[in-house]
């Protein structure tokens, strides 16, 4: 994309990209550390994640202010307009990712010292790794202006859903085996659900980023596997 005649306009757009990247890196790191704290029962680390969320929130407010000022001062058009509006929306999704990481961190104390089976721990770790990869990649593709990679990235969300379904089943089995584990397992289930929700926010971000870069909506979404609700309905019968 060519430079604007007014170079400070380019600088302001670049700052929006920069803030978005910082928010994304921070919330990615919050997810990584929240998972670690959860699996290692590290309450101190969890506390750090909780306080980091304030920084994500502050960055989002800063970004919103800059975006609104930019609209007022520059009256952006076409791709610039899509960029400013889309950045505001992507920042809101990233802020939610931060909240979800904070929510996982808050549960660390509640799960406590309940030993987690190595398989379950491995599943949660793999799910978290995959989610983290998505969080990192989505802004990377966007900042590098690679819309075609965003299509592929969005389709990866299905893998996260598959992880979530298998963790759900596993936790259900534990709870049925030993009712004393219900409290801890319920918290873990919420943690897995939070990771799955992060994946959904990444999907939103990918869709927004694709629209900014191309002016087109992403082709109609992948078919949503609704295995969980099927499981729940067959269980009753």
């Amino acid at each position: 994309m060519a430079q604007h005649i007014v170079s400070s306009f380019d600088e302001e757009l670049r700052q929006l990209d920069q803030l978005l990247r910082e928010m994304d890196e921070l919330s990615g790191s919050m997810i990584r550390r929240a998972t670690q704290a959860l699996l290692e029962a590290d309450v101190e680390l969890a506390q750090k994640v909780v306080t980091d969320d304030r920084e994500v929130d502050a960055k989002q407010r800063d970004l919103d202010d800059r975006a609104v000022t930019l609209i007022a001062r520059r009256q952006p058009m076409a791709q610039d307009l899509r960029l400013v509006v889309g950045t505001i929306r992507m920042a809101a999704d990233i802020e939610r990712i931060g909240d979800l990481a904070k929510n996982i961190a808050k549960r660390v104390g509640a799960v406590g010292q309940t030993p987690i089976s190595p398989e379950l721990s491995a599943s949660i770790q793999s799910m978290s790794d995959l989610v983290l990869k998505q969080v990192d990649a989505v802004i990377e593709h966007y900042v590098a202006r690679r819309p075609e990679d965003l299509v592929e990235l969005r389709d990866n969300d299905e893998k996260i859903d598959i992880f979530y379904t298998s963790i759900f089943r596993e936790l259900l089995t534990y709870m049925m085996e030993d009712p004393r584990k219900i409290t801890a397992c319920t918290h873990l289930l919420f943690c897995a659900k939070n990771l799955e929700r992060v994946g959904d926010h990444v999907t939103n971000i990918a869709e927004n980023a694709y629209y900014i870069l191309t002016g087109q909506q992403l082709p109609v979404g992948r078919p949503k596997q609704d295995e969980l609700s099927r499981m729940e309905s067959t269980k009753g019968s």
Binding site: M1, A2, Q3, H4, I5, V6, F9, P76, M77, A78, Q79, D80, L81, R82, G215, Q216
Partner: peptide
């Protein structure tokens, strides 16, 4: 919002 031609885009965005 989404012009097709680069020249249009460059003109209306001030590039």
């Amino acid at each position: 919002t989404s012009p097709e031609v680069k020249r249009t885009q460059d003109y209306i965005t001030g590039r």
